[in-house]
Simulated assay, not measured.
Amino acid sequence: MKIAIVDPGSGNLASVLRALERVAGESGLPAEIAVTTLAADVRAADRIVLPGQGAFAACRRGLDALPGMVEALNDAVIAEKKPFLGICVGMQLMAARGLEHGVTPGLGWIAGEIAPMDPRGTDGTALPLPQMGWNGLDLAQPAHPLLAGLAPGQHAYFVHSYALAGGDPAQLLASTSYGGPVAAIVGRDNLAGTQFHVEKSSLVGLRILANFLTWAPS
């Protein structure tokens, strides 16, 4: 099994690589896992991971700067339906557009846009941004294969000031709460994304990555 970790110029690439290598080894799955900037590697991969951190616009520019990468992603993920996992800004890029530092088109794979958060406490006061730290997960679709072995309320590690708005409820796999509901995991068909950093989310993140390696979308 070949797994391509796409490098858009930002993201915890080494941490994602180590986490995937760990779960592949613990699961006894023979896997060839590599960080890449080459469209050819994405086309040859069996599974694709897109990490990202920082600003939406910068990550999109990073993707666009890789010759043929966006086309390869669309061919591999949408046309050939290879399993795909977006992480943090990699998940945000799955949306129609991002509103950080102007309006930037996303990949358009899921409904909604990435908009600035405006979290409020129960008394109406603004909560700090970015949302940073460990937040519990509310599993909207607990039977989804990527959520196997997870229990409601388990925590994942978030760092973000923008979040999915106007999404399709049918594409929401899990949410968290920070001054209101926040999309934590989204997906449809063969693609999924986590707003939180799976590679920093301890056993919860490792479980999701292990599930991703055996995920066989119908």
Rank of each mutant, 00 (worst) to 15 (best):
residue 7 D to I: 03
residue 8 P to S: 13
residue 14 A to V: 12
residue 19 A to H: 07
residue 22 R to C: 02
residue 22 R to D: 07
residue 22 R to H: 12
residue 27 S to I: 00
residue 28 G to N: 02
residue 30 P to L: 04
residue 36 T to C: 02
residue 38 L to I: 03
residue 41 D to I: 07
residue 41 D to H: 15
residue 44 A to S: 13
residue 46 D to E: 14
residue 49 V to D: 11
residue 52 G to Q: 08
residue 54 G to T: 06
residue 54 G to F: 04
residue 55 A to G: 10
residue 61 R to G: 03
residue 67 P to R: 08
residue 70 V to R: 14
residue 75 D to Q: 15
residue 77 V to I: 12
residue 77 V to L: 06
residue 78 I to Q: 14
residue 79 A to V: 14
residue 81 K to R: 15
residue 81 K to Q: 15
residue 87 I to A: 04
residue 88 C to N: 09
residue 90 G to K: 05
residue 95 A to Y: 00
residue 97 R to S: 14
residue 107 L to N: 09
residue 107 L to H: 08
residue 108 G to K: 09
residue 109 W to S: 06
residue 110 I to L: 14
residue 116 P to W: 10
residue 117 M to L: 15
residue 121 G to T: 11
residue 124 G to P: 07
residue 127 L to S: 11
residue 127 L to A: 09
residue 131 Q to M: 12
residue 131 Q to C: 08
residue 136 G to C: 06
residue 140 A to M: 10
residue 145 P to R: 11
residue 146 L to H: 12
residue 149 G to P: 12
residue 151 A to E: 15
residue 154 Q to W: 03
residue 158 F to W: 07
residue 158 F to C: 07
residue 161 S to A: 15
residue 162 Y to Q: 06
residue 164 L to G: 03
residue 166 G to W: 08
residue 167 G to A: 04
residue 168 D to A: 07
residue 172 L to K: 00
residue 175 S to V: 01
residue 175 S to G: 07
residue 179 G to K: 00
residue 181 P to N: 05
residue 182 V to M: 05
residue 182 V to R: 01
residue 184 A to R: 00
residue 185 I to W: 00
residue 195 Q to E: 09
residue 198 V to Q: 13
residue 201 S to V: 01
residue 202 S to T: 01
residue 203 L to F: 12
residue 205 G to W: 00
residue 212 F to A: 01
residue 216 A to K: 14
